[in-house]
Simulated scan of single mutants.
Amino acid sequence: MDELSEWLPTLGSVLIVGIPAVAGLALISAGVRRWIRHRSLAGSGHRATAVVVDNQLQSRSEGQTHFRPVVTFRTAAGQELKTVVDLPQSRSYLTGTEFEIYYDPQRPTEVTPVRNGQRGTITYLVFGVVFLVFALFAYQLTSTMFEEFEDFGDVDLTWP
């Protein structure tokens, strides 16, 4: 029983506290990266008008399908490029639809829309904070629970 009482609190903490905490930090990190990327392209990128030429289908869980627009645009140097914009929605984009984008002149296929470029960033941040708050409460709960478990650990379970 002593071996069980030594590693069970550690395992419980890892499963109940560690996994949600890591997930929360990963979501916050992804949200911050998206925000920085958008701000960087908005500040130093070039602006262009993109035209939707196709849709890229993206299958999600539970049979959901999202569409991301495949667009063409002309750079300031006159180069015609085709790329996929990370702007998923549940309905397909209409071919010929125009919208403004920012692109990186060093890597012109890296684009972000001028409007709704922050779409999803807030969601990542909110869910990340929710996971971290859950991990904090789970830590408080497990530390109290495992303190009581250690008091119970002196029972002799050997068969007579």
Rank of each mutant, 00 (worst) to 15 (best):
D154T: 14
V70W: 01
F99N: 03
L11D: 07
R34D: 00
T121K: 01
S61Y: 07
V85A: 00
V85L: 01
E110D: 10
I36W: 09
A42Q: 08
V133W: 12
S44Y: 06
S40T: 09
T112D: 01
Q140S: 10
S40D: 06
V126E: 15
L15Q: 10
R68E: 06
L94G: 10
T142A: 15
T142H: 13
H66R: 08
A42H: 07
V17W: 05
V51R: 14
S5E: 02
Y139A: 14
P69M: 02
S61R: 08
G153E: 14
Y103L: 04
H46Y: 06
H46W: 04
A30E: 10
N55L: 03
R34G: 00
I19F: 10
T142C: 14
T121Q: 05
S90C: 09
G128A: 09
P88Y: 02
G96T: 04
G45I: 01
W35Y: 10
L157M: 15
A30G: 07
V71I: 08
V51W: 06
A50E: 00
R37K: 07
L87I: 00
G12K: 09
E150K: 14
A23Y: 03
R39L: 09
A50Q: 03
V129M: 15
L141V: 13
T95L: 04
Q64G: 09
R39N: 13
A48I: 08
S90T: 12
V17R: 06
R91I: 11
T10V: 10
T75A: 13
V130I: 15
L87N: 00
V114W: 01
S29G: 12
V133A: 15
T121S: 07
R91A: 13
N116I: 06
Q118T: 09
T121E: 04
